[in-house]
Design a protein around this nucleic acid. Structure first.
Length: 914
RNA sequence: GGGCCUGUAGAUCAGGGGUAGAUCGUUGCGUUCGCAACGCAAAGGCCGCGGGUUCGAAUCCCGCCGGGUCCA
């Protein structure tokens, strides 16, 4: 690895290689007197108050200076990608510029959009959320300016020397003193790749990282970095990252990155929060400068570390931690809000819908955190106003302004939801707190975790509310990591794909989607799995199930039950292992009805998606879909429930699209070209691998799709939407049927309707009214019934009182009442036992044996226990029972022994009286 | 993708195998010139839906539907 950094460029330009005495890493510098590597904590920030470039830049002028510099040096400028990584299924957010080109460009499968290229890619990282605002340098959202160069053996554009040279020249162009620059050696590894890398340090600030990615992770590889083993790759990539915000900061030398990057919004927010932010006041600026310097050299995650930082800063500027805290906390919150609102502008602007899962959850996390900070500062301005400020501040992203109406609605809804959660939470906390107050205990940690984990109530709020109720809580520093621990990580299972050393199967289903029969040669037979040289059988994929059908040879036929695509080799699984062998010529026949139903549902899915977008808005994005022969479902990102009206409208539009009988266009296109032409909407149904992708166009819907489709929309037949379902917050599912399945569904519904109206002897039109009337009447009868039972009970009591037997001063009544249900028995028994000295033992036979015993107050005092009596009696009739001493009920199945049970009941009372 | 919580009167919620409750609100009566306040009374429940267990389910179990929330 050492040799990797022996660049000619360094040698020719008078660099010397030194080893940092503190961290022991090697670095290159033009100034032989430089002692340390230039990276905190070995050195601290020196650029604050001493800008490193010859003039000040803001975000847009810095970005432009960078991009045009690289354009001038032979690079093509490429548009930014969205912050939500739509083209990836392994990460939610775009975390680096290279993420734009993973995995297919970096793997060499797909050529880059340009080579070499330069880009300024907005990135979002939420790892250090707590440090944002406090450290003076952390941001959730930043633009990674980069130049990338994709080399392969025999086709090298440029590699290490040229990369360092470009960096050096750029810094020189910006007026940076090159003697102050150090290139620190620091091998990089991540996401299965690795390579040598240098960090570019100026004034104690890491301005850029130049990564030379030429290794891939291989088990037992010969090169070891950070505990993993790697091998050289055939393609090797220049992956650079220049922090736009850091360049701006370095150009201004302001106390914090926030004051450098968004001075206007910071000052507006300070006004709203009523904070005097006099960054020109040297004393004030010194406080934040010192803070940033110290924070630059230490880890400030966790309360303990933060306190340590506060202490250091307080000591240097000669104040107390308390005073410092009071001054800094609100300002830090404003910084954080500024950053977070920018993050939200990007997230929502790029179409993330807040939700409780996936990327949507991250958006909600940031949004709620921002609201919390605003509340602490008592900023009454609606959040959307601040986000709008940000959006207006980015003239370079006009796409955000187009979405403003939707963003407004989303933010308003989210604010409402959060307020609800807090309100609900506060009540719950109060209740919980009172519970512990009664017990005179502290509220335990487990309770705090529970409140946060299941109800989303931040522990700080719990503490506050509990305090008001006079209950202390136990809140350790490590709270959030304790929560994280509770969610034990479910290890992701690696699905081991069967790798077959066979030629790729020719996909006849792509060549002619109307064909039902074909001939092919058997290439391999593994148990009941058959691999052919060509096939019409569509393998399961893209939410479309596998084709079924038969494979046959002269005298035998095998049913194909499943078909899978193993990296281009299509495997037919048959339900028996009758004897095909290598080299056999077979005939295949697919179950056309099944296939046609799939094709209809698949094309219909695209149409419903398009219709939903037209009705609900541009933010609609497919997050999943599944087809079958009789129905299909489509999951869409949407921030509220689909109304009945919208539902009908979507159905109508979908059927209109069918009736227009539009052609369905299928083209194989170069991936990069397709992305350029249509954008990432292509990947709604998933991200297909490969250089060439199959593009399907129906009406205005364009998607990368590997499924089989009908050739014209008219062939779909009717589309019947069945229902919507909210599978997650922010994700709506539409279920529908198409073609014959739709007709069947409609018929089924008609039948239900007919059956229902037949049952009530009315026509379907009158069904709703009639049902309502019946329901109302049913409720009335129920009430009346209850009233009558109560009356009946009274009458029965009067009539039967005379039959009571005296036992030691108690009146014991034991009686079988024909056909009375439990309720009647209870009512009668209760009525009896209103008399203190009465014990009523009642039984009936209605759907088995029912027994009710009630004892008056005096009887109970004398030891009569209704529960005990019922238990014993019920045992006799083959059941069980129980209740309270005053009233109990039970029963069994053996009606023949009712009399016996009643006798036993009386006997038990007299036993008590002895 | 993986968890956790939750659904009871118009609203907020208790209860948690054995006769469905409280508070507020509503209506009526009383008090008042009238209102507020107060006193008394009443109406208002498929205990989310469907299965299962049980003599008996609002309560336990399973599934579905709805709402909430955390993590990756």
């Amino acid at each position: 690895m050492q040799d990797e950094y022996q660049l000619d460029y360094f040698k020719e330009n008078g660099f010397v290689r030194k080893t940092c005495p503190k961290c022991k890493t090697n670095f290159w510098t033009r100034d032989a007197d430089t002692e340390f590597c230039g990276d905190p904590p070995c050195v601290s920030y020196s650029f604050i108050g001493a800008p490193v470039f010859k003039k000040e830049y803001d975000i847009s002028s810095m970005r432009e200076a960078y991009l045009s510099f690289f354009e001038k040096h032979g690079h093509t400028r490429v548009d930014r990608y969205p912050v939500i990584a739509r083209w990836r299924d392994d990460i939610y957010l775009t975390i680096a510029s290279i993420a734009d080109f993973q995995p297919f460009v970096t793997s060499g499968l797909v050529p880059p959009p340009a080579n070499p290229l330069t880009i300024s890619q907005p990135c979002i990282r939420l790892d250090d959320l707590d440090a944002v605002g406090r450290s003076g340098r952390h941001l959730t959202t930043f633009e990674m300016m980069a130049h990338h160069c994709f080399n392969s053996r025999g086709n090298e554009i440029y590699w290490k020397d040229r990369t360092v040279e470009l960096c050096d020249t750029l810094l020189a162009d910006l007026g940076c003193d090159l003697k102050a620059v150090t290139y620190k050696e620091n091998p990089w590894a991540g996401g299965g790749n690795a390579g040598p890398s240098v960090e570019v340090m100026v004034g104690g600030l890491e301005l850029a990282t130049l990564v030379f990615m030429d290794l891939k992770q291989v088990k037992g590889g010969s090169i070891e970095i950070k505990g993993e083993t790697y091998e050289k790759m055939d393609n090797y990539i220049v992956d650079t990252g220049y922090g736009l915000e850091r360049f701006v900061w370095a150009s201004k030398g302001s106390p914090t990155i926030y004051d450098a990057v968004f001075p206007k919004i910071v000052s507006e927010l300070m006004d709203l929060a009523g904070i005097e932010h006099s960054i020109d006041n040297p004393e004030y600026a010194r406080m934040f400068s010192q803070n940033a310097r110290f924070a630059g050299v230490m880890d400030i995650s966790g309360q303990a570390n933060l306190l340590q930082l506060r202490k250091k800063v307080a000591d240097t500027i000669g104040t107390t931690v308390e005073k410092l805290q009071k001054l800094m906390v609100p300002v830090e919150s404003v910084y954080a809000i500024t950053d977070h609102s920018r993050c939200l502008a990007f997230m929502l602007g790029d179409g993330i819908i807040p939700s409780n899962v996936k990327a949507g959850y991250l958006a909600r996390l940031v949004l709620r955190r921002t609201l919390r900070l605003m509340k602490e500062l008592d900023i009454r301005e609606p959040l959307i106003e601040i986000i709008e400020m940000q959006i207006k501040n980015f003239p370079e992203y006009p796409e955000f302004r187009e979405r403003l109406d939707t963003i407004r609605e989303i933010v308003a809804l989210e604010e409402e939801k959060y307020a609800d959660t807090i309100e609900r939470g506060t009540k719950l906390v109060k209740k919980t707190a009172l519970h512990f107050k009664d017990k005179k205990e502290k509220m335990p940690l487990g309770e705090l975790i529970q409140l946060y984990d299941t109800h989303g109530i931040p522990p700080e709020i719990t503490r506050e509310v509990a305090k008001e109720a006079g209950v202390e809580v136990e809140l350790p520093d490590t709270f959030y990591s304790l929560v994280a621990k509770k969610h034990s990580k479910a290890q992701e299972e690696e699905t081991e794909g069967l790798t077959l050393d066979l030629p790729l199967t020719r996909k006849l289903y792509y060549e002619d989607s109307e064909q039902t029969e074909f001939s092919a040669k058997v290439l391999e037979v593994i148990e009941n799995k058959i691999i052919l040289d060509r096939t019409l059988f569509y393998p399961e994929g893209g939410g479309q199930p596998a084709d079924h059908g038969t494979l046959s040879m002269e005298d035998y036929v095998a049913n194909v039950a499943d078909v899978q695509n193993m990296n281009g080799v299509i495997v037919h699984e048959t339900d028996s292992d009758i004897g095909f062998k290598k080299g056999d010529a077979v005939k295949g026949k697919i179950d056309w009805e099944r296939r046609l139903a799939h094709m209809r549902h698949h094309t219909a899915t695209h149409i419903v998606n398009e219709s939903a977008k037209a009705v609900l808005g541009k933010h609609i994005w497919q997050t999943g879909a599944q087809k079958s022969t009789d129905r299909a479902r489509l999951d869409l990102t949407h921030f509220k429930r689909i109304t009945d009206e919208e539902f009908r409208e979507i159905e109508l539009l979908a059927n209109r699209a069918v009736m227009k009988n539009q052609p369905v266009y299928i083209d194989w296109m170069d991936r990069i070209e397709a992305e350029k032409k249509y954008g990432f909407v292509l990947y709604q149904g998933g991200v297909p691998p490969g250089k060439e992708i199959r593009i399907l166009r129906v009406g205005s819907d364009v998607e990368a799709c590997g499924g089989t489709h009908v050739s014209n929309t008219g062939l779909i037949g009717p589309i019947k939407l069945i229902k919507t379902e909210r599978i997650q917050d922010g994700v709506e599912r539409i279920e529908f049927s198409a073609g014959e399945a739709a007709v069947k569904r409609m018929q089924e519904r008609d039948e239900l309707l007919n059956k229902a109206s037949d049952a009530l002897r009315v026509s379907p039109e009158h069904l709703p009214d009639t049902v309502n009337r019946f329901f109302d009447e049913w409720k009335e009868f129920k009430k009346e019934n209850e009233r009558l039972k109560a009356e009946l009970a009274e009458v029965r009591v009067k009539a039967m009182m005379g039959d009571a037997v005296e036992i030691n001063g108690l009146k014991v009544l034991s009686k079988k009442i024909q056909h009375a249900d439990v309720e009647e028995l209870i009512k009668a028994a209760t009525e009896f036992s209103k008399n203190d000295d009465v014990v009523a033992i009642l039984a009936s036979e209605s759907g088995g044996v029912k027994i009710v015993v009630a004892a008056g107050a005096r009887a109970q005092k004398l030891g009569v226990n209704a529960g005990a009596i019922v238990r014993e009696m019920s045992k006799l009739v083959g059941g069980g029972g129980g209740g309270k001493p005053g009233i109990a009920q039970g029963g069994g199945t053996d009606a023949a022994r009712i009399e016996e049970a009643l006798e036993r009941g009386v006997e038990m009372v007299s036993e008590k009286m002895k």
